[in-house]
Design a protein around this nucleic acid. Structure first.
Lengths: 239, 239, 239, 239
DNA sequence: AATGAATGAGTCTTCATTCAT
DNA sequence: AATGAATGAAGACTCATTCAT
């Protein structure tokens, strides 16, 4: 019961936990949560059914663990990735690709499952776990928010945008697009499609050199014109 | 044996079918497909379990019927609605509101389920039915495409847009936004949020009246300012 | 309510009853009793499910009616058939063929069902009906018994046979043979196979005219007789 | 972890499988396959319904296991039994008794079910399993064939018999006879009835030493020959 | 810590039978 | 007499979870 005798099994334990997690992740992605039995998870992981429940009290706990793991990876990759870019548009494009790649890839449509079970099915997430997942989700989307806000600060992005709406368009658009890609089995061409979706979004939020005059510009112009006319009038009267 | 005596049972039959459809629709939305037992559907509809299967051969058939019905209503409302508007932005805003209202409302998150099961879970829609659902979906989204393309023809929308990407942003953004709204229980304020999402999208695809002026506009303005200053100077010198 | 007004519908009624009987007969033969639903019977007969139960109170009653009908035909054909033959072996061969033809044919393996349900399944025949069916069966097998006994009386068949055992061999052998034929899809060649089965049976019960004469025996006897005659001739010549 | 601690649960496992098999065997025999619910089987075996399905994937698998077990016993007993007899008629009589005893007994009419379901009901045996059952059946009936063929070789049985027909008469006759016995509740007197059925069959296939010539006939013939020879001798002597 | 046999509630579906029209 | 919608009990089978070893 000392550290040494424990460390070996401990390692094996963690290995086994990872095996189960991986097994569940694969099966949930392939078959969906409901169609994946704990028996299949155990078999696919090479352990007994009982062992699965030694590591995860319930099947739901296992789902939450799978989702958490995915968020952790998604978040980590996102954070380390944006640090390599300085221009906002590059960062956004990177986040988009990372999102699609992490969501699709060998995990297939797992992320979809997250939202489904999060929001609709079975009220699985009615309790404490919900909070945990929301935190994970919030932490992840916060990165996007940060990129946008920094873009505003750097005057690459307009300061009058509705961040919440932009965020919804970004993630919603990407996931919808991903679905489109998957149905057409064109997952190979991610970059192109991702940039197709990001482009209009970027177009609507960036500060365009000669585009951004906005209403006050018009007012100013009107003002100028009015003043010019009034001055002209005066001059004419004088003369 | 005349029309009247026959119409009575006929009516009741159709009524019962509607009851079951409504019951299933509500429960699928509230609990999810898997967590909704046929027993619950029967009870909620006020019929026996056997009766459910007299109208719908399997639970899947019932799901498909629910989805079809929703698409039918969505499509019909969309088509009749856009005919009342002539400006493209109004049409888009209408389609967005219609989509959210039809998708949410008492149907709650059902539409989400559609896509989820369509794409991920259990391969429920692996067979012929899939085709039917795709047709319904295609018919529905075609309306959006039509509005956009007509906007292009009327020179309200740029002709260099990527329709597929715009479509994904539109539907994906709206659904993601809807989720946000639901989680915050702010479904009352649909119009505001919908327009928040539609705005950036519209901003990126519309042809801006005073936007395209480019450098010669700036020159003109500079010219005006110069003249204004020169005039002012002259006046000042006079006084 | 008089005879005339009744006769037309009465006829139709009987027609409908026959349709249901025929439908059930076909389906029981093809699918088995349990796998045949009353709904299928109704559809196959071109009537509504309710109508089936107007004519036959339960599904079991219908089974009994089907069986009775088959026995009736079997018995009738057997009786009228044997009257055309006078030799016992011909009569037996006829009865055998009639049995196989009536049991198999488009009724497929229905007769098997009879015995199954009669003896094993569900105790379907525990009550009064049993008696009725036994009577039918008894009436039918009595014909075979009669042929055998008459054969005995005509000194075509030994008088020390065990009729009960012969009867079991006859019907059991035929049905087992029929099964063999059906499994090999050789139902076309009924006559040959039937005579193959009947022959050993006949061989064991018939009275052989000069029972002992194998061919070589006859030759020997002829030889003896010839020699005897030649000796006699010689003797006569001497004297 | 040693053999002993492991053997205990192993033993219990096999015991439970046997319990379920026995339970199913009894109930199939008593009620028939269709009328025996898996719930009843479980209760009768003293296990939960789920446990039944832990050992046998489907109810059909269970049926097949029951039948296989019966064939195994039947075949084993038959093989070991015939080795104790050298005369063909004794072997046949033994096979017959073994068949009836193994088929009837506490298994009641199970064997009948085999053939019934094999051939008629529900097409239960349409797939691979059929093959397995046919093999078992073939293996079993091969023993009978072997006994007959050896009888032919030993010149106890005629070499011009139709084996297939004899086999059908043997098994068909026995089973039909068994039914007769059961209906009359005379199962106690198996030996007598079995020999009643076997006798005519044997009578038709055996080689009769001097085929049926009553002794006095032979004597008479010998007498004639002797006298003939004596006369001939006398005549020769004269010449 | 690992196992896997055991559980039994729960699932979808079928079907003989009834009865209002 | 004919219909066919409605019933609800019963069926085979699944599965997350427990627990003795």
């Amino acid at each position: 019961m000392n550290n040494i005798t424990k460390s070996a099994p401990r390692y094996r334990v963690e290995q086994k936990e990872q095996d189960i997690l991986k097994s569940a992740s694969e099966l949930f992605a392939e078959l969906g949560f409901n169609a994946t039995s704990t028996k299949k998870i155990a078999q696919n992981a090479g352990v007994s059914e009982g062992t699965v429940f030694n590591y995860f009290a319930t099947k739901n706990d296992l789902l939450i663990a799978v989702i958490s793991e995915m968020y952790a990876k998604l978040t980590e990759d996102a954070e380390s990735g944006i640090s390599k870019y300085s221009h906002t548009i590059e960062r956004i494009q990177f986040l988009a690709e990372n999102h699609v790649r992490g969501t699709a890839g060998n995990k297939a449509l797992l992320l979809r499952l997250i939202y489904v079970y999060m929001n609709t099915d079975l009220h699985i997430f009615e309790h404490l776990e919900t909070t945990a997942l929301y935190k994970l989700n919030h932490e992840y989307t916060k990165i996007f928010d940060g990129v946008i806000l920094e873009g505003v600060r750097h005057q690459e992005i307009r300061d009058d945008i509705n961040l919440s709406a932009i965020r919804d368009l970004f993630f919603g658009g990407l996931e919808y697009a991903m679905r489109t890609l998957m149905l057409k089995n064109k997952m190979g061409n991610i970059e192109k499609y991702v940039s197709d979706v990001v482009e209009p979004l970027w177009d609507s939020i960036q500060i365009k050199l000669s585009q951004s005059e906005g209403p006050e510009f018009k007012d100013k112009l009107d003002d100028v014109l009015k003043r010019l006319e009034s001055v002209t009038d005066k001059l004419n009267q004088r003369d």
